[in-house]
Nucleic acid binder design. Structure first.
Length: 512
RNA sequence: CGGAGCGUAGCGCAGCCUGGUAGCGCACCUGCUUUGGGAGCAGGGGGCCGCCGGUUCGAAUCCGGCCGCUCCGACCA
C-alpha cells in the first residue's frame, strides 16, 4: 500500500491529485489555475507530441507558429465564436509598469485596442488564410501548430482543466464541403488511433449535439473516454467549421469555374488534458501506471546487495543487462557522460527517447521499488546476489503486478520490445474491458437518472436531439449527451425524454 | 461571483479559548548499524506564526481591515 496516496475507493478526487504529486508530474503555480508541468510530466507530453506529430505529417500536414495575442476585433467577427469564448478570455489592456502611489507597481500605458490571449486560434488562422488563399490551386491549406492557449476557467484541476494549457490545433481550408468533412473525420480517426494505439485509452467516436458543439462550428466530432470513476472525458475534438470563418474573415478563392467561392475550414485539437485521461485510465492505488509506448523511462534496474563483496558482481550483472537491452554503444556513451551519477539512464534506441535507468542511489531497495512504481515505470528489473548466482533476474511488470524470473541470456532488445508490446496490449485490453462493462442501456428516463447517479459509465439510450431537453436533463442529473456515436445499432425507438420516435441512440454520462 | 472552511518550517498539523523564549510528525543534512516490499539509533539545519494596523510592558494568541488558498455551486477541452 502506498502511504502517500489515498485509495480510489476512499476519495477518487484526492487519489488523482496524490498520483500526480507522488509521480512529480506537475505542481501548482503561484497564479491560481495555472500549473507547472514538471520534467516527468512534460516528458509524457513530449512523447505524445512525437507520436501525434508523425501522424499529422503522414496525413499531409505541416507545422507553423501563430502568435499568442489576437486583436479584440477579431473575436467579434464570428457571432457564435465570440459568445462561446467571451467569458473565459484573458484581455491585455496595458503595456509597461510604473510606480504607484503606495510604492507598488501599476500598469502604465493603456493600449488603443485591447489584445486577447488566444483561447484558440481560428480567428488568426482565418485572417491569414484570407491573404494566402487566392485560387483553388492554393487549396487545401493543412497547417498545425503546437502552442499554449489560455481560458480563464473558474474551477481548475491539474491537467484536466487549467487556465493555461498546451495543445495542438490544426487549421485547414478546403475547396469543397465534402473535402472539409473528409478532413474533419480523418483527423478524428487519427486521434482515435493515437488514443488507442499509443495511450492504450479506448475511445468512442461520435458527433456532438448542437448544444455541445464548438462555438462557430457546423459540426463537432469527438472521441470520448471513460475514467475509472465512471465519468466521461472528452479526449479530442475535430470541427467542420463550414464557411462560418471564411465569411467572417473573407477566405475566398477563384474556383475551377472562374467564380469566387468561400473556402471551407476545419479545426481540430488535443491537449495536455490527455495526460489526465492517461492517469485516470490506467493508474492504480500504488500510483501512476504508464503504457510502455508512452513511458519516458521504460525500465528501472534495481541492484540488491548487503555486503560490500556482493556489490561488484551485482553491479556487473546489472551492466550486462543494460548492455543487452540497450546496446553496447549507447551504454558506453551513457557511462562516459553520466560518470559518478547515482542514476544512469541509457537510451533503448536512437529515436524514441525512451531509456532504461540504473538506480545505484544509496537507498534501501524497497525505497527504490516504491520510487519507480509511483512514477509509472512499466518494468522493473531486480538483481540480487541470488540472481547473479543463477544467471537470472526478477522482472516486475507495473501494469499487471506480475513477477517473472528471467534468464539474463534471453533478455535483449528484441525481448524488451516484445515485452513492451505484450504489456501495451494487456493495458488496452483491460481498459477496453472496463469501458465495455460500463456502457449500460436505459429505456426510460428514471433508468437514465439512476444510472447517471450511480456513475455507471456511459448510458446508451434513444434520444431525439433537443437543446431544451438536454439542459433539463443536465440540471436534474448532471449528465450530458457525450456524443451521438458513429456506431449505431440501427432501427428506431422512443426518445427517453420526449417519447417521440427517433433513429438515434446517444451516450449520456457525467463528464469531466 | 455566491456559500463554507483554512492560512504557524518543504509537506501535514498542534499551540490561540486563558497574551510571557516557536512546537510535533514526515521530509532534509551528518555518522554508524541496516538493505529481496516503505528500517533503527545518535546528532543537526531550517520560521517576516499570510499582510497591515490597533490594544498591551509584552501579540502566533485579543480587536479591526486587507490578501491568499481549498472545498461546494454557476462556466468549461
Amino acid at each position: 500500500m502506498a502511504r502517500n496516496i489515498v485509495t480510489r475507493s476512499n476519495n477518487y478526487n484526492e487519489w488523482y491529485l496524490d498520483v500526480i504529486k507522488a509521480a512529480q508530474m506537475a505542481d501548482y503555480s503561484p497564479v491560481k489555475g495555472c500549473m507547472v508541468i514538471r520534467p516527468t510530466g512534460y516528458a509524457i507530453w513530449e512523447a505524445m507530441q512525437r507520436d501525434l506529430d508523425r501522424r499529422f505529417k503522414e496525413t499531409g500536414h505541416v507545422n507553423a507558429y501563430f502568435p499568442l495575442l489576437i486583436p479584440m476585433s477579431f473575436l467579434q467577427k464570428e457571432a457564435d465564436h465570440v459568445e462561446g469564448f467571451a467569458m473565459e478570455v484573458a484581455v491585455v489592456t496595458h503595456s509597461g509598469l510604473e510606480k504607484s502611489a503606495d510604492g507598488g507597481l501599476k500598469p502604465k500605458g493603456e493600449l488603443a485596442e485591447p489584445l486577447l490571449i488566444r483561447p484558440t486560434s481560428e480567428t488568426l488562422f482565418g485572417a491569414m488564410y484570407s491573404q494566402w488563399v487566392q485560387s483553388y490551386r492554393d487549396l487545401p491549406v493543412l497547417i498545425n501548430q503546437w502552442a499554449n492557449v489560455m481560458r480563464w476557467e473558474m474551477r481548475t484541476r491539474l491537467f484536466l482543466r487549467t487556465a493555461e494549457f498546451l495543445w495542438q490545433e490544426g487549421h485547414t481550408a478546403h475547396e469543397t464541403y465534402q473535402e472539409a468533412q473528409e478532413e474533419t473525420l480523418r483527423m478524428l480517426d487519427v486521434y482515435a488511433a493515437f488514443a488507442e494505439e499509443f495511450l492504450a485509452v479506448p475511445v468512442v467516436k461520435g458527433r456532438k449535439t448542437a448544444s455541445e458543439k464548438f462555438p462557430g462550428a457546423d459540426a463537432t466530432y469527438c472521441i470520448e473516454a471513460l475514467m475509472q470513476d465512471g465519468k466521461a472525458l472528452q479526449a479530442g475534438t475535430s470541427h467542420n467549421l463550414g464557411t462560418n470563418f471564411s465569411k467572417a474573415f473573407d477566405i475566398k478563392f477563384l474556383g475551377r469555374d472562374n467564380q469566387q467561392h468561400l473556402a471551407v475550414t476545419t479545426s481540430w485539437g488535443v491537449s495536455t488534458r490527455l495526460i489526465g485521461a492517461l492517469i485516470m485510465t490506467h493508474s492504480d492505488d500504488e500510483g501512476l501506471v504508464l503504457p510502455p509506448k508512452v513511458a519516458p523511462t521504460l525500465g528501472a534496474v534495481v541492484p540488491i546487495y548487503r555486503k560490500e563483496e556482493e556489490k561488484g558482481p551485482v553491479l556487473e550483472f546489472c551492466t550486462r543487462l543494460l548492455e543487452q537491452l540497450c546496446g553496447g554503444e549507447r551504454l558506453k556513451a551513457a557511462q562516459e557522460r553520466q560518470k559518478g551519477r547515482e542514476l544512469m539512464s541509457v537510451f533503448t534506441d536512437s529515436s524514441s527517447n525512451q531509456s532504461v535507468v540504473l538506480d545505484i542511489r544509496d537507498d534501501r531497495p524497497v525505497e527504490k521499488h516504491f520510487h519507480w512504481e509511483q512514477r509509472g515505470v512499466p518494468f522493473r528489473f531486480e538483481i540480487g546476489p541470488r540472481d547473479v548466482e543463477k544467471g537470472t533476474f526478477v522482472l516486475k511488470i507495473r501494469a499487471t503486478g506480475e513477477k517473472r524470473f528471467v534468464e539474463l541470456k534471453n533478455a535483449d532488445a528484441e525481448w524488451l520490445a516484445a515485452l513492451a508490446r505484450e504489456t501495451q496490449q494487456a493495458m488496452f485490453d483491460k481498459a477496453l474491458k472496463f469501458r465495455d462493462e460500463h456502457i449500460v442501456e436505459a429505456s426510460s428516463y428514471p433508468e437514465l437518472k439512476e444510472a447517471l447517479e450511480k456513475r455507471s459509465g456511459f448510458v446508451r439510450c434513444w434520444f431525439k436531439e433537443d437543446a431544451t431537453a438536454e439542459a433539463k436533463i443536465k440540471e436534474e442529473t448532471k449528465g450530458t449527451v457525450r456524443c451521438i456515436p458513429f456506431q449505431q445499432t440501427g432501427g428506431s425507438g422512443k426518445c427517453i425524454f420526449s417519447g417521440e420516435a427517433t433513429t438515434e441512440q446517444v451516450l449520456f454520462s457525467v463528464a469531466y
